[in-house]
Design a protein around this nucleic acid. Structure first.
Length: 448
RNA sequence: GUGGCUGUAGCUCAGUUGGUUAGAGCGUUGGAUUGUGGCUCCGAAGGUCGCGGGUUCGAGUCCCGUUAGUCACCCCA
């Protein structure tokens, strides 16, 4: 019989424990931060009817979507983000949920695009959105959540770049360029990457006159402290009601961030941030890592006017952002920030004497009820080999007991890092065992 | 979807102008007088050189195709 070569699909990956542990940690961090701000969890199916998913999508997302005909003849697609499912979800349930509604959603999505570093065909997004309100408080909260997420994850250098689509639209309106807004925004979005010259060329190709191009470039060159940027924008957008509205909101957001204790280095007003997606209408965010900008944005989002217009007549404005968990993880890995050792439990119990498994299980049970984790080695191998395993897995304490100790109701508690060990009588006094382990863990680490 | 680079053991790589049975380190595994690990020493397993075709007396090495990774475009988390 010929063997089937075991492999995963292009852009799809397995996760070994060493990768899965930090991955779960990251999800836990995201959950904790979201809950801290009053967001509640939801989940939706991986598969949706194709018409639900393609409704709003651009040609690009349609092309990247996995879809097929199911056994009942229905056209079905796999979700490529969490926002479209949210829109459908909101249209169906907002009546019972009420507004404002703040939810988070941590789940995998699928896109059939060419994989690259930090870009996969199956990846987890951690979305959070506030729907049913246009209040600036939600804008501020979104920025604060992003800021807190990055901190809690352990990234020390990052920058949340903030812009407002209204500033851009107001500006384009002034130049009578509303029609080519998408092209202009796309060109602006990659200013960082390709430089002024290339962007100018692209703008010219989009049908802008030399003067219009010049104006757009002037706008994109605005930079400096938040107050500097705001005053320059003020000048440039005199007479544009929409533009002034956008500037005012940015001013409020930055002021509140400062008041909330966010240091200047972590955010910046950046007019070139436009985001590709067309449905953003207000504030937009993009977060890049100071130590690895090339991997792109790890957390992006923005405000939209009408989330679920395709599915309901109810008007649902909102704002949200998405943390790219797998991209962030790829970045942390490239930066060497993923710890190598993967401790599976706190306490290791070698199977010293195969005839005394009842004693080992009794001990493990005591340890586990105290809230610590314990593992019993499955084979009665030589003690040295069992300890070697414990050592490699990063266990901190071993409970070693052969028939002699067990007959006396005792066990040896050994700190694997310091090699210090003590003897304790545990039979009929489980608290003694737990206390002795705690004492052992509190001892200063002699090797450190 | 388009183009550039890469693909040798589980991992990181070496492999000379094409020339016998393809190597190293780490890891895995067994042992070093059957109750205590990380070090050391000895031994072992593990490779259809990504896959398929071609050129050649002979291909890991050259050519073509394909697949996967990677980078750029596009798009985006």
């Amino acid at each position: 019989m010929t063997l089937i070569e075991p492999r995963t699909l292009k852009g799809f990956r397995d996760f070994l424990p060493a990768a899965m542990i930090p991955r779960e940690r990251l999800m836990e961090v995201a959950r904790t931060v979201y809950r801290r701000y009053g967001f509640v969890p939801i989940d939706t199916p991986a598969l949706e009817l194709l018409e639900v998913l393609t409704g709003k999508g651009s040609d690009e997302t349609d092309r990247q979507m996995y879809h097929f005909i199911d056994n009942g003849g229905r056209a079905v697609g796999m979700r490529f983000d969490l926002t479209v499912p949210l829109a459908r979800f909101a249209a169906q349930h907002i009546g019972t949920l009420g507004t404002p509604f703040k939810r988070y959603h941590i789940a995998p999505v699928w896109r059939g695009e060419t994989p690259q570093a930090g870009r996969f065909r199956e990846f987890v997004q951690c979305d959070f959105d506030t729907i049913g309100t246009t209040g600036v408080v939600s804008d501020i909260e979104t920025a604060l959540v992003i800021h807190e997420l990055m901190h809690e994850v352990g990234v020390s250098r990052f920058q949340i770049r903030i812009n407002n689509r209204k500033v851009l639209s107001g500006f384009l309106e002034k130049l009578e360029l509303q029609g080519s807004s998408t092209a202009v925004l796309r060109a602006l979005d990659k200013l960082d990457k390709v430089g002024v010259e290339q962007v100018s060329k692209e703008l010219a190709q989009a049908g802008l006159s030399d003067q219009q191009t010049q104006q757009v470039i002037t706008l994109s060159k605005i930079q400096g402290s938040t107050s500097q940027v705001l005053s320059q924008l003020d000048d440039l957008l005199q007479g544009s009601e929409q533009g002034q509205e956008g500037i005012e909101r940015l001013r409020t957001i930055c002021g509140a961030m400062k008041a909330a204790g966010v240091a200047d280095e972590f955010y910046r007003l950046d007019v070139s941030i436009a985001r590709g997606l067309d449905y953003y209408t207000g504030v937009v965010f993009e977060t890049t890592l100071g130590d690895l900008p090339s991997i792109g944005s790890v957390c992006s989002g923005g405000r939209y006017d009408n989330l679920a217009g395709l599915y309901t007549k109810q008007h649902l404005p909102g704002i949200g952002a998405s943390l790219g968990l797998d991209r962030l993880l790829a970045a942390l890995e490239q930066l060497g920030r993923i710890p190598k050792t993967t401790p599976s439990a706190d306490i290791f119990i070698p199977l010293f004497d195969a005839d005394r498994i009842n004693d080992y299980f009794a001990m493990a049970s005591i340890v586990r009820s105290s809230g610590m984790s314990a593992e019993i080695y499955p084979d009665a191998k030589k003690l040295g080999q069992q300890l070697k395993y414990a050592d490699q897995r990063g266990f901190r304490i071993a409970l070693i007991a052969g028939s002699q100790e067990l007959d006396a109701g005792q066990v040896q508690i050994k700190n694997l890092a310091t090699k210090v060990s003590t003897q304790v009588t545990w039979r009929d006094q489980p608290d003694e065992l737990v206390a002795a382990i705690r004492r052992m863990l509190d001892l200063p680490d002699m090797l450190a």
